[in-house]
Simulated scan of single mutants.
Amino acid sequence: MQVHKLVIHQLEKEAKVKGIKEYNSSEALMALNPGIDRMYELIHESFENDKTRHCKFKLEEVSNSVLLNTNHYLEDDDFFLKYTKASLDNLASRIENVLFASGGYYLFADYTVNQKRFMSIILVRNKEGFVIAFNDRKKNFDFNDTKNINTDKLAMGYRLNVNLYLNRETDPDRNYMALLTNQGDDLSDYFLEWVNASEAVNGKIQTGILINAIKQLGSDDPDEGEADFQGRVYDLIMSYRKGNKGSINIDNISEVIYGQKRRIRDYIELSLERDIDPDIRPDGSILKKLIQIKAQVKGINVTFDVSKLGNEVDYDGGVLIIRNENLVNQIKSQREFNG
């Protein structure tokens, strides 16, 4: 982990009151030290493990300040401070009339972890474990403590995977933006509009990604058949979903199936080269693909349980074989019925 650039600005307003209460803007980049690197390691882990959603820029919003200034900075390495100031000026104009916005300290960073480059903006408040003070003499902010940072209570955050963003045309399926709210709150509309975030990836797509990963990973038990494994996982997900108001946590599911919290998400990212949120609301019809196979052509629809494949249902080359006398009798009966 290495932080390359960091700028802090303060933008405060009172909730339920219009107008900006306090606006302190840094005049220079922060001095970096190993404590800041450690702090950003924790912040990065929050994006990996907590209430995160993946999406993209709305690229059609060509006048968006964060998008425009991000592009300027990626073309001009000396533009970082201007990027942060221009972006925050735009935010100030957005929130001054938003009654329930309160603001705080906005940390803009450019950093590298595991040879991957990221840009992030996080909103924090002093009461949430970040002890930040404005230094009038230096016209900059000081961290009074980087050892006891509490990233469990980050207010909101945005993170851009720079490499994925720059390669978006050759890899259009990847989501290069991550949005964070550790406190489980919905992200504020003004924040989503400010960072120009697209709609979240819908539940059907994310469920499909999960099912694909589970099928490819398979069972760790060589004696467990494919149908038994997939049926067991289906029952697990449905039970977890029922007990959690329709949501599942991918890492918790992974730990139960494989004994490793990150195994499913790491496989999705590294092997499938896709993205999935840590918490999703799985789509029931897509989940059934774990236990059912459906196929259709014009005039023919076939649906059967995975457990029937290789027994009552099989295929040989271009021939589908169904061995079930009851089905045969039903078809005969309908053909012979004269009305």
Results as ranks from 00 to 15, higher is better:
residue 252 N to H: 06
residue 21 K to D: 15
residue 154 L to P: 00
residue 179 L to K: 03
residue 289 K to A: 07
residue 147 K to C: 08
residue 296 Q to I: 02
residue 139 K to P: 02
residue 248 I to K: 02
residue 140 N to H: 09
residue 67 L to T: 08
residue 103 G to S: 13
residue 265 R to T: 07
residue 53 R to S: 14
residue 293 I to W: 05
residue 5 K to P: 08
residue 182 N to T: 14
residue 16 K to V: 13
residue 205 I to K: 14
residue 267 Y to E: 03
residue 179 L to C: 09
residue 146 T to G: 01
residue 9 H to K: 11
residue 335 R to W: 14
residue 158 Y to L: 00
residue 240 Y to V: 12
residue 267 Y to T: 05
residue 35 G to N: 09
residue 68 L to G: 11
residue 281 R to T: 13
residue 145 D to C: 01
residue 126 N to G: 06
residue 326 N to T: 12
residue 193 E to D: 05
residue 183 Q to D: 13
residue 325 E to V: 08
residue 150 N to A: 01
residue 77 D to P: 01
residue 67 L to C: 11
residue 1 M to E: 09
residue 76 D to C: 04
residue 31 A to W: 00
residue 24 N to V: 04
residue 153 K to H: 10
residue 272 L to M: 13
residue 92 A to Q: 12
residue 306 V to H: 04
residue 132 I to G: 00
residue 86 A to P: 01
residue 166 L to D: 11
residue 307 S to D: 13
residue 214 I to T: 10
residue 253 I to K: 02
residue 286 I to E: 11
residue 8 I to V: 10
residue 51 K to I: 08
residue 290 L to D: 03
residue 41 E to C: 10
residue 228 D to K: 09
residue 172 P to Y: 06
residue 279 D to E: 10
residue 146 T to E: 10
residue 47 F to W: 05
residue 2 Q to P: 03
residue 242 K to Q: 13
residue 268 I to H: 00
residue 141 F to K: 00
residue 130 F to Y: 01
residue 207 T to A: 08
residue 274 R to P: 03
residue 69 N to V: 03
residue 265 R to Q: 08
residue 257 I to E: 09
residue 273 E to G: 04
residue 216 Q to S: 10
residue 339 G to Y: 10
residue 308 K to N: 12
residue 169 E to P: 09
residue 125 R to E: 14
residue 298 K to H: 09
residue 125 R to M: 06
residue 21 K to G: 10
residue 125 R to G: 09
residue 46 S to C: 08
residue 163 N to V: 02
residue 164 L to Y: 07
residue 89 D to H: 10
residue 204 K to M: 14
residue 46 S to F: 02
residue 272 L to K: 09
residue 87 S to G: 03
residue 258 Y to C: 07
residue 25 S to H: 12
residue 260 Q to P: 00
residue 198 S to V: 00
residue 142 D to L: 07
residue 293 I to G: 12
residue 317 G to H: 07
residue 150 N to C: 00
residue 99 L to S: 13
residue 273 E to D: 09
residue 38 R to N: 12
residue 100 F to H: 15
residue 15 A to P: 10
residue 270 L to S: 13
residue 152 D to Q: 14
residue 186 D to V: 03
residue 59 L to T: 11
residue 49 N to E: 15
residue 277 D to V: 04
residue 3 V to I: 15
residue 306 V to S: 11
residue 275 D to H: 15
residue 55 C to Y: 02
residue 83 Y to H: 08
residue 247 S to N: 06
residue 138 K to F: 14
residue 232 R to H: 11
residue 230 Q to P: 07
residue 188 S to R: 11
residue 206 Q to P: 08
residue 17 V to Q: 12
residue 268 I to Q: 01
residue 60 E to D: 15
residue 66 V to T: 06
residue 54 H to M: 15
residue 51 K to A: 13
residue 337 F to G: 09
residue 13 K to A: 01
residue 136 D to W: 07
residue 90 N to L: 06
residue 336 E to S: 10
residue 307 S to F: 02
residue 225 G to H: 01
residue 212 N to G: 05
